[in-house]
Simulated assay, not measured.
Amino acid sequence: MDTIIEQITGNESEDALIYEKASKILRSGGLVAFPTETVYGLGGDALNKDASRKIYAAKGRPSDNPLIVHIADRNDLYKLAEEVPETALKLADAFMPGPITIILKKKECVPGETTGGLDTVAIRMPRHPVAARMIRESGVYVAAPSANTSGRPSPTKAKYVIEDLNGKVDMIIADDTVDIGIESTIVDLSEEVPTVLRPGYITLEMLRKVLGRVEIDKAVEAGNILASDIAPKAPGMKYRHYAPKAELTIVSGNEDSVAQKINELVSKRLEDGAKVGIMTTDENIYRYTKGEVRSLGLRADEATVAKNLFAVLREFDDIGAEYIYSEAFANSNVGQAVMNRLIKAAGHSIIEV
């Protein structure tokens, strides 16, 4: 397959042709990768069974891993969901458009191929201008997981979408204005108590301010449900995700002990002739003098860490790192979302010091 690659330029007449092209592809059952405020997504017509099958095939994604349906109008909630509870309307008022996905009981029009065979549907309304315009102009609901090979770090730059999906999808829209860097928060509203199935930029504390009682799924607290037979309601709950090519290990504890341990591990790997990466923050970067050291951002502002996490993991792939050691982060607020991704990327390899 020849993949069309188009760059958003800001020139209205040029960009209008890109949206027109993308719309035709989506309406005909094809696939388009596009930027959102969280990460790049790989989109297909959510009500077209064959388009959803193509998404799974292009990514190499297990077909029981549900897709998120992206909409351009909040009224579309009523067209996709059997019922829209008051909790959904409150979250929509507070956070839509934005980096939040809500799970509701689905209508018959949403095929099981899109929902991973579940009777619920995950719905999100992105605020990124490219995503919003593409969905609106296409006239279809867009099922879209992240635009990467399944299991790899989600892409926040077009070059990584091209690396993973060139030749596998019809079109890639490049516009590197992704500003959050991790996928949306997912909240299950299909049961009595609202429950977070995937932490993200919209934090548990923010959700509780709007809804009052909100729980976090035990599988999220445990890190995964890899060994269970539970049907995953949210993308990525049951499968290894975000993994770089290198062996990634998280080191957790007080900052002095963590730095000492990482430096010891790095020295041993370097003595063996390996290429080693270190993930730290602006506050601690001075502690590391060996290996390939990268700051993820400010520990005092974990949103900056979230924004850079996947890009740094991909950068270590680019330079051929064989081992990566990362500092741990707080398991609250946006740090909870960062740790959720890091733990999955590391395959639960954590050293406590």
Rank of each mutant, 00 (worst) to 15 (best):
T249Y: 08
K268M: 09
G277A: 05
I8P: 00
R314Y: 09
D164A: 13
L80E: 00
P232K: 00
Y286N: 14
L309P: 05
T87M: 05
S252I: 04
I55Y: 09
I68N: 02
A132F: 05
E113H: 02
A122D: 11
R53P: 07
R287W: 10
L77A: 00
S138K: 07
E215V: 14
Y286S: 14
E247V: 05
T289G: 12
N48I: 00
K90N: 11
K59M: 03
E322L: 08
A92W: 10
V142A: 14
A147H: 03
I102Y: 03
P66I: 02
Y239V: 01
I173Q: 00
E20S: 13
A174Y: 04
Q7H: 14
E113I: 00
D317P: 05
D188A: 05
I71S: 07
A328G: 15
A33F: 04
E221W: 12
L165Y: 07
A132C: 12
V161W: 04
I343R: 13
L118A: 11
I102S: 03
M125H: 01
G253P: 08
L42T: 01
P111E: 02
E205N: 10
L197Q: 07
A158P: 06
I135D: 10
E327I: 11
A328D: 15
R124S: 05
A234P: 02
Y242I: 07
V338H: 13
R341C: 01
A88H: 04
E192Q: 12
H241W: 09
D188Q: 07
T249N: 11
A303G: 11
R240S: 15
T115W: 08
G223K: 01
G212I: 15
S23A: 12
P99G: 03
F310S: 05
F310E: 11
L298E: 11
V276S: 07
I102M: 05
V293I: 02
N308G: 10
D164S: 08
